[in-house]
Design a protein around this nucleic acid. Structure first.
Ligand code: FAD
Length: 601
DNA sequence: CGCCAGTTGGCCGG
DNA sequence: CCGGCCAACTGGCG
């Protein structure tokens, strides 16, 4: 091999994007990684540069904060090794950096502003053709090995049947040919895979091609009119996981859709942004650009100038703390949060959506609206960051910018402000699915209930409940502590939570509603109004030092002071929202435990 | 400052 | 199935 011909290392990455969590960064500041990395990209790449006499390193630009920080280090290491670095943008239609520049350095907070900014930029480039062949890399000797992972940081522990140490496959992979290991080779047995959705480029391209066959569907797509209750098939493209993992190019998606739309000659009018399919891709880009303008603070409230401060229940600790990620100001609200996360709220539509999310890793956009509104401004009044953490763990398409951005939208803390428009778990479900097929599919214990009661089974007469084979009664004590953390990966550790079974007689039951929805909605809207009046944002000094809550919002109603049914431990907490130094989820195993297990590169 | 548009609410009356 | 009301928010722009 000649020393003058280039030796190019293409670094293909799939990051664990949960690493953008502020709590993780707090954890790392307490326990910094060793100055000289012993494993991961920081350790392996410099050695490969040397051993393979690399002249160029090529990778795709990533603007998420975890990746951006790491990539900065890698670029430094490459420079030291005399390796030239080539970085290309490919994850989004436009480079977030350029969009922000075109928008005067400000975050893009509305789609119209985003579209105006991108008008001044050149169109996204056409997707590139698939290469006919790849150069032969020659013999790839390897005189070193990645240090084996310790089990301190194993996100997948609950899924594994062997110690990560045993299943670790090394840099060359299990077949010694640098190929990607299978799940089995990683020590994860197939039955733990509960989702019907499958990854990979072949599947992504086939799914896109199938959708493009129906030109009318593509050309007239109107997002707000697509039912969130459709399943097999879903009413939207379900291509989001492929965009996330890179198994589908967002530029190919855009240009193929545009071509199919031009080719459509039917009677209907083509839809326009923001509701058409390109509009959906613009929203995605808009969140990436907004995130880029704000930086790591985009993942939460503290330090985020564009997001409103609201004195939610279960607020993130200030400063971020790995051992106490959030404060349990109200045990009742904590019980609501756990019940939401595991799909046992007693509101069938919410529960069906949360169970679909946990089992399959994807729910429709309007389903996400329903459950996000319900957890935050339209029901439980819980911090949107708690919801975002659960989504981050359960979504196949988890994308930090889109997740945080949409949670801010739904909680009316940024992007959207009409907090008096509130989703009802009964009315919104009925609007799309009168007979409740979606609920019957994902909450099968209710399958035999008559249509009339499918969204409110607790209103069914006892006789009807018995006939349907499932009684409705308050959630029994003692279930919540067994659930683990709310964002634990599926399936529940210890097996079958659902359907709930009465501890006494072992009979199947469905829980009655965890609160009076109308009462909670009115409560939330009133509180949102107050918080809007106070007008604090995430960068306010009173938010940064953690005093805003007590100083401005003390002496407010607390769910623990009335007799709401929770199914969790009821604990009188006084009438003020005092910050209690209870650990975020100590009783259930906590975020720090999860983080300790989650670190890998 | 005032105006207007903003993907996707619920409810009641016709 | 549609339209108006509810009570009223923001960002972006002139
Ligand atoms: C609380 C909440 C959290 C969310 N978290 C994520 C997330 O982590 N990752 C994610 O990709 N989307 C997220 N979304 C946005 C949206 O729900 C999903 O992108 C969409 O449901 C994916 O399904 P689809 O591919 O069938 O979408 P389609 O309707 O077919 O749209 C095509 C593509 O456009 C993009 N897109 C569509 N809507 C949005 C949107 N509102 N924001 C950003 N991109 C969008 C997606 O990449 C999607 O694949 C979230 C929405 C909410 C309300």
């Amino acid at each position: 091999m000649s020393t003058t011909s280039p030796r190019v290392l293409y670094w293909s990455r799939t990051d664990l994007r949960t690493h953008d969590s502020p709590a993780l960064h707090a954890a790392l500041s307490l326990q910094p990684p060793p100055a000289r990395a012993t494993r991961g990209a920081r350790a392996v790449l410099p050695r490969l540069f040397e051993e393979w006499r690399i002249t160029h390193l090529v990778f795709e630009k990533d603007t998420d904060s975890y990746a951006a920080e790491r990539d900065k280090e890698i670029v430094e290491l490459a420079k030291e090794a005399g390796v030239e670095v080539v970085v290309e943008t490919g994850r989004t239609l436009w480079d977030p950096e350029e969009v922000v520049k075109a928008h005067g350095g400000k975050p893009t907070m509305s789609l119209s502003a985003f579209m105006k900014a991108t008008k001044t930029l050149s169109d996204p480039s056409e997707p590139l053709p698939v290469p006919d062949s790849l150069p032969d890399p020659g013999e790839l000797t390897l005189s070193f090995e990645n240090e084996k992972p310790s089990d301190d940081y194993d996100l997948n522990e609950v899924h594994r049947c062997s110690h990560p140490d045993e299943s670790y496959v090394g840099i060359r992979g299990p077949k010694d040919d640098f190929s990607v290991p299978t799940l089995e080779e990683l020590g994860i047995p197939e039955p733990s895979v509960t989702t019907p959705h499958r990854g990979g480029e072949s599947i992504a391209l086939k799914n896109l091609a199938d959708l493009l066959e129906n030109k009318e569907y593509i050309a007239t797509f109107q997002k707000p009119q697509t039912p969130p209750t459709a399943f097999e098939p879903a009413s939207t493209t379900l291509l989001s996981p492929h965009l996330h993992f890179g198994s589908l190019s967002v530029r190919k998606f855009l240009y193929d859709v545009q071509r199919a739309t031009e080719a459509y000659s039917g009677p209907k009018k083509a839809s326009q942004p923001p509701t058409n399919l390109p509009g959906q891709l613009y929203f995605r880009d808009m969140y990436f650009a907004a995130q880029h303008a704000i930086g790591p603070a985009f993942a939460g409230t503290v330090g985020n100038p564009t997001t409103r401060y609201i004195p939610w229940h279960l607020p993130s600790s200030i400063p971020p703390s790995p051992t106490t990620p959030y404060t349990i100001d109200s045990p009742t609200a904590h019980a609501w949060f756990l019940r939401w996360a595991w799909g046992i709220t007693g509101f069938p539509f919410v529960d069906a959506l949360m169970r679909q999310l946990r089992q399959e890793g994807w729910i429709h956009h309007l389903g996400r609206h329903m459950v996000a509104c319900f957890l935050t401004r339209g029901g439980a009044y819980v911090d949107w960051e708690r919801g975002a953490e659960v989504f981050a763990e359960l979504l196949l398409d988890h994308e930090p910018a889109c997740n945080a951005g949409n949670w801010m939208w739904l909680s009316c803390t940024a992007f959207f402000a009409q907090y008096y428009r509130c989703y009802s778990p009964v009315a919104f479900g009925k609007k799309w699915d009168k007979s409740g097929d979606f609920v019957r599919r994902y909450v099968p214990e209710l399958a035999a209930f008559p249509d009339k009661y499918i969204y409110e089974p607790h209103l069914a007469p006892e006789e009807t409940q018995k006939k349907a084979g499932c009684v409705v009664k308050p959630l029994e004590e003692g279930i919540l502590p067994d659930l683990g953390v709310a964002h634990a990966p599926p399936p529940p550790p210890g097996g079958d939570l659902l359907p709930l079974k009465s501890q006494h007689l072992g009979e199947k039951y469905y829980p009655s509603p965890m609160f009076d929805f109308a009462e909670r909605r009115d409560f939330c809207i009133a509180r949102m109004k107050e918080a809007y009046k106070a007008g604090l944002h995430g960068d306010d000094p009173r938010v940064l030092d953690g005093k805003a809550r007590d100083e401005l919002f003390g002496g407010l109603d607390d769910p623990d002071s009335n007799g709401d049914e929770t199914g969790g431990g009821q604990e009188k907490d006084g009438s003020t929202l005092k910050r209690k130094r209870t650990s975020g989820s100590n009783a259930q195993g906590n975020l720090s435990g999860w983080l300790k297990k989650g670190r890998k590169d």
